[in-house]
Design a protein around this nucleic acid. Structure first.
Lengths: 349, 349
DNA sequence: GTGAAAGCGCTAACAT
DNA sequence: ATGTTAGCGCTTTCAC
C-alpha cells in the first residue's frame, strides 16, 4: 500500500497534518471552516482528510470548547412510578410523545444534533441531570413536563443552564417555553358544541395534577358559563385510552341525558367513543364528541374525531429553537412562544 | 465564606485534591471505586467531593478511557422519506416504537445509561453514524431496522464496532440480534383460525420490503397449507392504521365471503376492524380477526383483539444487554437471542 | 497505598 | 496566512 500512515490506529489531527505537510492548527482551521486559510492549502488538507479517513474526536474537542453539540430531551414526572406500570409504557406509547419527537427531529436533524433521551422522575435523577448539564454530557435540556408540581422546571431555571420547556411552567420562573393558551383553545370546543345545539354538555378532564388538565377544565367551564351553562359536570381521566372508557362509562351513568362532551385529549375521546357505541348512542346525533390534540388517534376514531388541534410538532421544533438560542446567547432574557389552537371539524361533532 | 475554593468555576479533580490534601490520582481512585485506597483517606476525599460539589467532566474522562458511557438508539430506513410525510410521524407514533423504548429504558436506566436517539435514512447519515461510533459520540448502537434492504446492518457489522439489532439482519452477517421466529408465531394464528372453524381465510400482510412483512406472510400461508388450504389471498399493507382500513376494504371487495383474517400487526387490524363494522360484519361471528404484536392498539379495539404477542419490551432490553456485552467483550463472537411468541386470545377470534 | 508525571486529541492564543 | 505552544480535566503507568 501507500507510504502514508501505517497502522496508527484511528487517524488524529496530527496524522492528517503530517500527510498534508502542514501544522495541526491549519488542519483544525480547515476542519472548522475558519476563513484564514489559503485555498490551495485547504485543498491539500481536505484531500489528506479523505485519504486518512479522519474524523474529529468529540471528547477532545468538547474538552476544550466546553460544548458537546448534543442536547437532552427530558421527559419529567414529579414522582417515580413502576416501570412496567402504566407510566413508562404510557408516555412512550402516547401519540403525543411521538409528535413531540417528530417536531424535535424536524428541527434538530438538519443541524446534525441528536437528542439524548432521558426519563426523570426521582430526586436522584434530577440532581444527576443538573450535574450532567454542568459537566458536558450535553449542552442543554428540552423539557417535557406534565405534572404541575414537578420540581424540575424550577431546578433548571435556578441552575441558569440552557433549557427550554414544552408548556409553561406551573410557577413563574425564568425558563424559556412554548405553549398554547388553554382558554381560547377549549373555547373553540365550547362554541362549537353550543352552535350545534347541544344543551346538556359534560366534559372528561385530564388529570387534575397537571396544568393541562386543570386549565382545559377551567377554560371549558368558563366558556360554557358565558353561554349560560352555569354547571358543567366533569369526570377526571388520566389522558389514556382506558381512562377515557372508564370516565365515559361513569359520565353516562350519572348523566344519561348528555348530548355533548368535550374530552381533554384524543386518546380518552377514542376510548369514550367505544363506550358510547357499546351503549347504543349515535355520534354525533345523540351525543357530539370533541377531543383535544389532533393526534393520530383522532383519525382512528369512528366517526373521525372533531378535535382542538394543538400544533405539537411546531411547538416542539420551536422549543428546540429556543433552547439553541439559550446557549448561543445565555445572557439574553428567556423567551416564550405562544401558539394558537384551531378546531378541526370532522364527523363526531 | 470559607478559605477554600473561591470562584474557580466548576470544581475539578484538582480542586478536590487540594481540599482533601491529597493528589489527583487518589481522588480519581476514590471516584472510580478502585480498591487500593486507605479507608480513612477515602472518607476525607468523599467529604471533599461533597463540599466542592464536584462532578467528573465526561469529555476529559472519555478522552482517556475512550468510552463515553452512552449508546445510540438508531431507527433506520433504507431510503429517506419526507419528514412531514408518513414515515417520521409514523415511526415515533407507532406503539411498536413506544414498546421498544420502554424495554430499552427498563434495562438502561438502572445502569445510568441514556440513549442518543437517531433517525438514519440517508447514505450520508449512515456514514456519519459509523464515524460517530468511531469517534466517541457513543460506544455502541442499538439498531431498529425495518427494511430488508437497509444497508446499515451490514455497514455496522463490517465496521466491527459494537452493535446489536432488534430483528435478524436480512443477510447473514456477524451482528448480534434478538428476534422471534416468524413461522411458529404466525402458525399460532393459523391454528387458532382453523380451530375456530374458519374455512375462507385471508391475510393482510405487512410491507413486503420488510423481513417481518415477508416472513409473516410466508409463514402464515405455510401454516394454512398444512391445514389443507392451498391458497390464502392477501393484500399488502404498510403497518399503519390507515393502510389496514384500505387493505380490509380491498379484501372485502375481492373476497366478500371470507370468515377469518390474519393481520400482520395490530395497528392494521384496528383499522380493518373499523371497516368490518362499517360493512356490518360482526366480529368474530361473521369474521374472526387476529392481529400481531399485542400493542396497546389491541386493547383499544372493539372487540378486543386476539393477537400474536411479541415480547417487544423484553426483546429490546435484551438487545441492550447484547450490546453491552459487545463492548465488554469485543473479541467474543456475536450472539443472538430468540424469543417465542404467544397467542393472546381475546374476543376478536 | 500514594504521588508524580505523561499523555488522550483537540482548540485558541500568541508569534511570526 | 501559518506554525508553535499551552492547556482543557482526566486516567494510568510508574516509582516510591
Amino acid at each position: 500500500m501507500g507510504t502514508e500512515e501505517t497502522a496508527t490506529g484511528t487517524p488524529t489531527l496530527e496524522s492528517v497534518a503530517r500527510v498534508a505537510g502542514v501544522s495541526r492548527a491549519t488542519v483544525s482551521r480547515v476542519i472548522n471552516g475558519i476563513r484564514n486559510v489559503d485555498p490551495q492549502l485547504r485543498e491539500v488538507v481536505q484531500r489528506a482528510v479523505e485519504a486518512t479517513g479522519y474524523v474529529p474526536n468529540q471528547a477532545a474537542r468538547s474538552l476544550v470548547t466546553r460544548r458537546t453539540g448534543s442536547i437532552a430531551l427530558v421527559v419529567s414526572e414529579a414522582e417515580h412510578r413502576a416501570f412496567d406500570g402504566p407510566f413508562l409504557g404510557q408516555v412512550f406509547t402516547d401519540p403525543f410523545f411521538g409528535r413531540v419527537l417528530t417536531g424535535l427531529f424536524n428541527f434538530l436533524r438538519p443541524r446534525g444534533i441528536h437528542p439524548v433521551l432521558m426519563l426523570i422522575d426521582t430526586d436522584e435523577a434530577r440532581t444527576q441531570l443538573v450535574n450532567g448539564l454542568r459537566n458536558g454530557h450535553f449542552d442543554g435540556v428540552a423539557l417535557v413536563s406534565l405534572s404541575a408540581r414537578d420540581p424540575l422546571p424550577r431546578l433548571l431555571a435556578e441552575s441558569g443552564l440552557p433549557a427550554a420547556s414544552l408548556f409553561r411552567p406551573a410557577e413563574p420562573i425564568p425558563l424559556s417555553y412554548v405553549d398554547i393558551i388553554a382558554q381560547p383553545a377549549v373555547q373553540l370546543a365550547a362554541d362549537h358544541l353550543v352552535r350545534r345545539g347541544c344543551t346538556r354538555v359534560a366534559t372528561i378532564s385530564g388529570p387534575l395534577d397537571t396544568s393541562a388538565g386543570q386549565e382545559r377544565l377551567a377554560g371549558f367551564r368558563d366558556a360554557m358559563a358565558r353561554h349560560g351553562h352555569a354547571y358543567i359536570p366533569s369526570v377526571e381521566g388520566a389522558f389514556t385510552h382506558e381512562s377515557g372508557e372508564k370516565a365515559m362509562t361513569e359520565l353516562l351513568a350519572e348523566h344519561p341525558d348528555i348530548d355533548g362532551v368535550f374530552v381533554a385529549n384524543d386518546l380518552m375521546a377514542q376510548g369514550g367513543l367505544l363506550v358510547l357505541h357499546a351503549n347504543g348512542r349515535r355520534v354525533p346525533d345523540d351525543i357530539a364528541v370533541i377531543g383535544f390534540d389532533d393526534s393520530s388517534a383522532a383519525l382512528a376514531c369512528r366517526p373521525p374525531l372533531t378535535t382542538v388541534r394543538q400544533p405539537l410538532e411546531d411547538m416542539a421544533a420551536t422549543m428546540a429553537e429556543l433552547l439553541l438560542d439559550r446557549f448561543e446567547r445565555p445572557k439574553d432574557p428567556v423567551s416564550s412562544v405562544i401558539f394558537v389552537a384551531t378546531l378541526i371539524v370532522r364527523e363526531s361533532a
